[in-house]
Amino acid sequence: MAEVLVLVDHVDGEVKKVTTELLTAARRLGEPAAVWIGEGADTGSAKLAEYGAEKVYVAPAEFNDYVVAPAAELLAKLAGDASAAAVLVSATPENKEVAGRTAVKLGSGVLTDAVDVSAEGVTEHSIFGGGTITHAKVTSGVPVIAVRPNSVPAEESPAAGAREEVSLELSDAAKGAKVTDRVVQEKGARPELTEAAIVVSGGRGVGSDDFSVVESLADSLGAAVGASRAAVDSGWYPNQFQVGQTGKTVSPNLYVALGISGAIQHRAGMQTSKNIVAVNKDPEAPIFELADFGVIGDLHKVAPQLTEEISKRK
């Protein structure tokens, strides 16, 4: 069986959930081989093997010192050497860029934001604000596919996870854009936004930088916190929590929108959520068109009551 390369998302050796989902999808297409860039493979490999990685290619941390191009050079080389059946990455803004560059190098095609991948390599996409479903495939060369987090349920399937160091001299072209500083903004103990099964987001309706009404509800549900652009631009919540077209795309089992009107750009980042709950004082707010359950009312009354009710039921 041909190898299917999976670019690993990890933070300090901890493998992100989306990678286990990609490994699961990769098993439909061939034999998963994980591609790890940077430190931490020692601790992370076990998890990759658990989810079906026969191999774990490891490239040095230096590859992270430059923007996107080294990862693409690495994936293209590995895909060529192994005659890979496909390359899978998570559909984050950065990895979509990696996918694009990799496909250019391979002379193949790229599909982004897949919400499913079949054994034949046919992908499913939800486009135009969720109104249309398409299926697509790559018709030339090694398919490079960016898959949305929370699209394919991860299933364990133990494999060898044999580690292989990759030696690859980066080209000068790959070193054109150098990362000279990395600024990590506050993160907190909550689940990661794109990975979380439940997301609770607050918008302009929250009314101030006191986001505790959103955070308390999120914590009662073990959820991640998100924010609309209006809340982020008002300085109420940090940028990396923005959900939407130019923020994060989330696809949780449950999305709770508090005081968010549901502008098209916001919907672009959350419309594939499986269940949507909205609280808004305006009965005409477009978010109600998406909501499975909606309450017309003041979030400052409804959300605390909900938080309390959830605690009671625990």
């Binding site: 790559v138 499975d292 309450v295 009312g297």
Partner: peptide, 28 residues
């Protein structure tokens, strides 16, 4: 083209949600 759109269909309509007005127990 290096990619092909195999088929296109409207998304199945979302079942209309339940929208209620808060009369003091919206949270519940």
């Amino acid at each position: 083209a290096t990619t092909e759109t195999v088929d296109v269909a409207p998304a199945p309509p979302r079942a209309a949600g339940t929208i209620v007005k808060d009369e003091g127990e919206g949270g519940v």
